[in-house]
C-alpha cells in the first residue's frame, strides 16, 4: 500500500541556483550498508538510545535509510534504499514555527540551523518537518552520570560539535563544522573553497560513493552537474520547500 508514496517527485522545478550547499544521493548506488549512518553518528556525537527506545521510534540517527516493499513473493522487490536526512530546505517549514529562533535559517550558508542552546523543546519544528528528519533528545542520552557506560565511550566525542542534552531538538547539519573548518582553512590560505573540499561524514564514508556534496550555486561543480540529470528528483517537491538534497532515482 504505502510503498510508492514517497518516491522522489520530478516536477522539473528549476534549480535557479537557489541555495548554496547541496547534496546529491544516487539511489541506484546506495547499497543500504549504513556506513553513512555510523559515520554521521560518530562525527556528530549522536547518542545511542538502547533497545526499548529505538524500537519505540526514538532513534537519534540523523540519517535513516528507508526501504519499502513492492509486489509479493516471488515477484517481490525491495524499493531502492533511500537515505533520508534533513533536506536543508530553502523554504523550510520548520523555521517559522519555532517561537524562539532555535530552528532558524542561516542566511550566509542557506542551511537550516538548529541552535541547540536556544531550543526550549516545543517540538513544533519536528511536527512541521514533512521529511521527519528531526530527532529529539528524549532523555539525557549523553550524560555519564545517568549512563555509567559512557564514561569511557565519551572519549571519542567530537569537540567541534555540541553535545546535546535532554529536551533539545537536533538534526543533520550538512556537517557545518566541516564547512566552517574548510572555510577557515581556505581563508587562512587566501583562496576560495575548492569543489569537493567540504565532505560531510556520510559522503566521506559511503563505500559506493552514492553521496556527492558541494556548491549548487556554481554550475560547474560535481553536485550541480549530477543534480540536472534526468534521474534527479526531490522528496515531496510539491510542497514547495525547495529541498537541497537531490535524489537520483534507483533502478534505471
Amino acid at each position: 500500500m504505502a510503498n510508492d508514496l514517497n518516491s522522489p517527485v520530478k516536477m522539473n522545478m528549476s534549480q535557479d541556483a537557489q541555495g548554496k550547499w547541496g547534496m546529491v544521493i544516487d539511489q541506484d548506488l546506495c547499497t543500504g550498508c549504513q556506513a553513512c549512518v555510523a559515520a554521521c553518528s560518530m562525527e556528530n556525537n549522536v547518542p545511542f538510545v538502547g533497545e526499548v527506545d529505538a524500537g519505540y521510534g526514538r532513534n537519534m540517527q540523523w540519517i535513516r535509510i528507508e526501504r519499502f516493499w513492492s509486489g509479493s513473493f516471488p515477484d517481490i522487490k525491495m524499493t531502492s534504499y533511500q537515505p533520508v536526512m534533513c533536506q536543508q530546505c530553502h523554504k523550510a517549514p520548520c523555521e517559522p514555527v519555532c517561537p524562539v529562533y532555535a530552528s532558524v535559517h542561516s542566511e550566509s550558508e542557506d542551511l537550516n540551523l538548529q541552535v541547540y542552546n536556544r531550543c526550549i523543546g516545543t517540538r513544533y519544528c519536528a511536527n512541521n518537518c514533512p521529511y521527519q528528519a528531526r530527532t529529539f533528545n528524549w532523555r539525557d542520552y549523553q550524560d555519564a552520570r545517568q549512563r555509567p557506560e559512557l564514561v569511557t565511550l565519551q572519549n571519542h566525542l567530537n569537540p567541534d560539535v555540541t553535545v546535546r542534552r535532554r529536551g533539545v531538538m537536533e538534526k543533520c547539519t550538512f556537517c557545518i563544522q566541516r564547512i566552517r573548518h574548510t572555510e577557515d582553512t581556505a581563508e587562512s590560505e587566501n583562496r576560495e573553497i575548492r569543489d569537493g573540499e567540504v565532505v560531510p561524514a556520510c559522503a566521506q564514508a559511503c563505500p559506493a560513493s552514492a553521496i556527492t556534496f558541494g556548491r549548487i550555486d556554481d554550475p560547474t561543480t560535481q553536485v550541480s552537474q549530477a543534480a540536472v540529470t534526468s534521474r534527479a528528483g526531490h522528496l515531496l517537491e510539491d510542497l514547495g520547500t525547495i529541498p537541497h538534497v537531490t535524489y537520483l532515482a534507483g533502478g534505471a
Binding site: Y101, S108, L111, V161, T162, T173, R180
Partner: peptide, 15 residues
C-alpha cells in the same frame, strides 16, 4: 554585506 550577514549568522558560532 555578506560579511555582515556572516558575522551575525547563528551558524557562525552555534553548531
Amino acid at each position: 554585506a555578506e560579511e555582515r550577514i556572516k558575522l551575525t549568522d547563528c551558524s557562525t558560532c552555534h553548531y
